[in-house]
């Protein structure tokens, strides 16, 4: 389908091996912070940044890291970038930082990042790892966006709330279905979305 290896590195992460809908990884932040599109987008960008950086560093250091201490080294690398992102967020978008809460430092233990470092960046050249990081990160962000879109529209009746482009969708009399904003709603919506992607992928015969 796509012969360019870099393009396929990107598209794989977004579609075929979408972290959320296909691999079902990184569920904790996915469920927790997708109440609003803004939060989903923020978390997604943070993950893209960390994932890309850590992929690049892991890949460039892959020959120098001894096998035995591979995982601890990866974790330190990831933790470093997460700390940096944390500081950046705190400094420039404090509201978003507060909204994401403890889930920003928890990016460290997001299976996607360690998983990509192990499965891909630890074995592949730097440039491919870069694109793989971007691809998986974009896939993750896409998942967050879809989920937060559904939850915000039904659970809050708005689009892009708490941003400059906020839209009140259904007028003032609308009584939003609050369950979408609740933890229970997050689980149920994600479950249904997963089922939906299963059906779509089966129809399109992508496996």
């Amino acid at each position: 389908m796509i012969d360019n290896v870099y393009l396929s590195d990107i598209s794989r992460g977004i579609l075929k091996e979408n972290p959320i809908f296909r691999l079902v990884l990184g569920m904790c932040p996915t469920l927790a912070i997708t109440v609003l599109v803004k939060n989903g987008l923020g978390m997604g960008l943070a993950v893209i940044a960390v994932l890309t950086c850590s992929n690049v560093v892991v890949s460039s250091l892959r020959r120098y890291i001894p096998e035995q201490v591979r995982i601890p080294c990866y974790i330190v690398i990831i933790a470093t970038f997460v700390t940096i992102i944390e500081m950046v967020l705190q400094a420039f978008v404090p509201a978003l930082y507060d909204a994401l809460g403890v889930f920003v430092p928890l990016i460290v233990v997001n299976c996607i990042i360690l998983g990509r470092a192990e499965a891909f960046a630890g074995k592949q050249p730097v440039l491919r790892s870069l694109f793989d990081g971007i691809g998986s990160g974009l896939g993750f962000t896409l998942g967050l966006l879809v989920l937060s879109l559904v939850r915000e529209v039904f659970g809050n009746g708005t689009l892009l709330a708490e941003t400059k482009m906020a839209v009140q969708l259904f007028g003032a009399n609308f009584e939003p279905m609050r369950i979408f904003a609740q933890p229970a709603g997050a689980f149920i919506v994600l479950g249904l979305l997963l089922a939906l992607t299963n059906i779509v992928f089966k129809r399109l015969q992508i496996d």
Partner: peptide, 11 residues
């Protein structure tokens, strides 16, 4: 184990 991603994700 080397061949596996080592993420211990439990999937």
């Amino acid at each position: 184990r080397e061949a596996l991603p080592g993420a211990n994700c439990g999937a």
